[in-house]
Write a protein that binds this DNA or RNA. Structure first.
Lengths: 179, 179
DNA sequence: TTGATTGCAAATCGTTTGCACGAGA
DNA sequence: TCTCGTGCAAACGATTTGCAATCAA
């Protein structure tokens, strides 16, 4: 989960959601099947290794299973979350993203590239924000989302800038046609 | 926006804040009308003074304008955002919330009560998270959302606990009927 | 008056679900 | 074989939009 579920908490013994009870509940009692579709989804998630949206996953997985439908993607994502293989990633304002569960096992957050819209994991963040709370409030967890440019897009942006500057300089030269 | 574009906190002084919604910035170029519906929405937002969802706003504003429809709420919220009177608040999850724009003028974040689902503003947060970024990434802004119990719900929860304990204790007494 | 605004319903958009068919075990 | 899973389409919930009636300026 992106939601950091461990922080300041009242002495209130309460389990919450967590996948603590999964072992007993979700043992392969249901006889889960290994389908091409699910394998394709898994492959995509492993290869990309970053939080992805259902449509993103569909597009990528369609290259492996052309007739794959969006409904199947949603059903599998949900099932894989229940089994503990994936974790839902809730970003401000956007549709749900999903990432490999082991990534969610340790406290981390997300970075969203404002250019390519992709989401990346960010490790760290040992902050405790309980100091910010008004009196009487109790803190259970937090979500932190960073926005900016990923390395790739930042590089491209720089290249564009450089190009623009070059063109500008060129245009400024006396021999060139005046703008 | 809740998105902390923590570049510069523009002092942005508001003179008499009676209802001077349209100062110089929002010159009524479009000839906006003052409708009962919009007034009701504004009144609700001012009174509650916290980020609210469109349905929340509808419910509250219906007490002022009974025949108010959800579409009108959405249209007005959007218009009020464009005019700069309100700011959209994107919380991890999905539904957009709205809050008075002046609240968004300074860097702040949000707290969501996991019990009553209400959202509150949280001031502060002078952190800079750029240290968390991978090489090549650049940070523009961040969103921080805290989760827990608001003062009201925390109190209620304690009351419930106390009550449960009392009942338990009572049930344990020999004279009481066994549960 | 007159055109912006409303209310209602139909239309979207993302996501879920019903159902008959296809495919793992 | 015998279910479970898939694909497709209809259903859904949140938000938007078309349109005739309404109302503020």
């Amino acid at each position: 989960m992106n939601r950091a579920t461990h922080e300041h908490d009242i002495p209130h013994a309460h389990a919450g959601h967590g996948h603590a009870a999964h072992d007993a509940l979700n043992s392969p009692v249901h006889g889960e099947r290994a389908t091409r579709q699910r394998a394709a989804i898994r492959e995509v998630m492993v290869k990309e290794a970053r939080p992805m949206s259902p449509p993103e996953i569909l597009d990528a997985a369609k290259k492996l299973v052309p007739r794959l439908g969006i409904a199947t993607v949603y059903r599998n994502l949900k099932a894989m979350v229940e089994v503990g293989e994936l974790s839902p990633v809730q970003l401000p304002g956007n549709r749900l993203f999903y990432e490999l569960a082991h990534k969610a096992d340790h406290h981390h957050h997300h970075f969203r590239c404002e250019d390519c819209e992709r989401v990346f994991d960010i490790d760290g963040c040992d902050e405790t924000f309980s100091a910010l709370l008004p009196a009487g409030f109790t803190l259970h967890s937090h979500d932190l989302t960073l926005y900016g440019s990923c390395a790739e897009c930042a590089t491209k942006a720089l290249a564009r800038q450089a190009k623009a500057l070059a063109k500008q300089a060129k245009a400024a030269k006396p021999q060139s046609p005046a703008a």
